[in-house]
Amino acid sequence: MPPIPDTIYFFGTCLVDLMYPQAGVSAMQLLQRAGVKVIFPPAQTCCGQPAWNSGYRDEARSVARAQIALFPKPIPIVIPSGSCAGMMKVHYPELFAGQPDEAQAVDVASRVYELTEFLVDVLHIELRDLGEPLTVAVHTSCSARREMGVADKIESLLGQLSNVQRVEHARKPECCGFGGTFAVKEPEISAAMVLDKVTHIRNAQPDRLISQDCGCLLNISGTMAKQGDAIPHQHIAEFLWERITPHPNLPPQGGKGQEAHPAQASSSPPSPLAGEGLGMGGKFGGQSS
C-alpha cells in the first residue's frame, strides 16, 4: 500500500479547462477534503496527446516537454482523465525515448495517476452518500479501461454511494467513437459509433451518465443534445462532490432541446474540515456507510 502523500500536483487537462472546469474544481476539492495539499501549476496547458495521436511527434514533444517542467517535485501527479493520464504515463516514455530529457519524462510518467485510481488505490477514500436516490450509467473511456487499466475504480467509487444505483448498458466496454481527431477525420464511422453508444445508454434509462473522461462525455452528450433529449451527464469528480457535500451544487441541467451540461462554476468554498461525507481509509478511521 503506497503511503498517503501530503501534497500532489494536479493536471487539469485542456478539455476540463475549457469545457468542464467544474470537474477540475470538484476533483481538487475531493483531494483537499481528503487532507491532501494540491499544487496546480498555472502554466499547464495540454498533455500533447492530440499531436501525438496525429503523428506530429515533434510538436507533441515540445508541448509535453513544457508540461514535464512543471512537475519537478517527487510527488504524485493526479489527472482527472484516463486519456491524458495514459498519454503521460504510457506514451511520454515512448515520446522521449532517446531524447536528452528521457529520464525526466520517465520520472514524470512514473508519478502519474488517473483521478479515480488515486482516490481508490492511494487515498482509499471512503464516501458517504448524502444525495437523493438516483440511477447512473457509467461510460469508461478506452484509455482508462485498457491503457491505464483502471475501469474498476470508478465502479468502486460509485459502489460506495448508498443511494446511487448503477444501471448497465449494452456493449458497455465498446468505444464511444470519439478518438480525438478521429471524430473529425473519419466522421461517418465516429457518428455510427456514438449513435449506437447513445442508443445503448438511453435503453438503460439512467438518470445520469457518468464518466472519468470529458472527451467521451463531450462526444456522447453532444450527440444526445442534437437528438433533443439529453440525459444529464457529469464527470465522476463533480458527481462525487455533489453526492457527499451537504449543500450540493445545482444538479446538472438537461431536458429537451438543451445540451445537458454540468452545473457551471458554483463557487461553494472548500470546507476546511475533512469532509462531512468523506473520510479517508485508515487515516481518519473511515466513515463508510
Binding site: G12, I39, F40, P42
Partner: peptide, 23 residues
C-alpha cells in the same frame, strides 16, 4: 450528429484562483 460543444463560463484556470491551491 452532435451539438457544438459548449464552452464553460470561465476556465478552470480562472476558477482555481478561489480554491486555495498552491501554484
Amino acid at each position: 450528429v452532435r451539438s457544438a460543444p459548449k464552452l464553460a463560463e470561465s476556465t478552470l484556470h480562472q476558477q482555481v484562483k478561489n480554491l486555495g491551491v498552491d501554484h
